[in-house]
């Protein structure tokens, strides 16, 4: 019995050293050597200062910016320190109410746009930090942003296209537009 216990403890200590210390350290070392930008959070800078991460959605509520996915994080939307989905069930009345309210806000910001709202702009994302929207959700907002910034819609569409990624390797996932990068490019263009 005591041999059994000793074996168990020795094995646990050895494997803890290998898997709990050496392994994360090696991944950290190699990861930062090969992919320093990615390993440290894919930060995006403007004028030398970080303004966010390309992977973490920010709150955009001003109509002159493209808006991202609704976020269910608390206490504020897009709280990166506390990721969470809404966890609303499909038949929960709160889900439909939230969608109605989001439609109303979008319509108020752009009264001329009568097109149905792409579903992603009225449903909360899985992390509460989705950095991207679909090309359909971007197109829905193009006219509003162009009008408020005094830019040609064609110019705005050009910026959208420049910040759109297709399916990865042509087949994986979905096409998507990075909202933070797009808005940075817009600010640059409107200067």
């Amino acid at each position: 019995m005591s041999t059994l216990l000793r074996n168990a403890i020795v094995l646990l200590l050895l494997l803890t050293a290998v898997t709990g210390v050496a392994y994360p350290a090696v991944v950290g070392g190699l990861g930062n050597l090969l992919f320093p930008h990615e390993a440290s959070g894919s930060l995006v800078e403007r004028d030398g200062k970080p303004v966010g991460s390309a992977l973490i959605g920010q709150s955009f509520t001003e109509p002159r910016y493209f808006w991202g996915r609704p976020s269910a994080t608390t206490p504020a939307a897009n709280n990166a320190a506390s990721s969470t989905p809404s966890n609303l069930g499909p038949t929960n009345p709160a889900l439909a109410d939230a969608a109605k309210q989001r439609i109303a806000v979008l319509r108020a910001a752009d009264p001329d746009n009568k097109a149905p709202v792409p579903v992603e702009l009225v449903t909360a994302s899985g992390s509460g930090l989705d950095p991207e929207i679909s090309p359909a959700a971007a197109e829905y907002q193009v006219m509003r942003v162009a009008r408020l910034r005094g830019l040609e819609p064609a110019k705005v569409r050009e910026l959208v296209a420049a910040n759109t990624q297709g399916r990865q390797f042509g087949m994986l996932g979905e096409a998507r537009v990075n909202v933070l990068k797009l808005n940075l490019a817009l600010d640059q263009a409107s200067r």
């Binding site: 149905p116 709202v117 792409p118 579903v119 992603e120 679909s134 090309p135 359909a136 996932g173 979905e174």
Partner: peptide, 24 residues
């Protein structure tokens, strides 16, 4: 509601509550 949840070349559509755009 005035929601477009149809799948198309520009969006995955469907039930997107709780899902991420890149995965659809």
């Amino acid at each position: 509601l005035a929601v477009d949840a149809q799948a198309s070349a520009l969006q995955s559509g469907g039930n997107m509550e709780g899902k991420e755009t890149r995965f659809g």
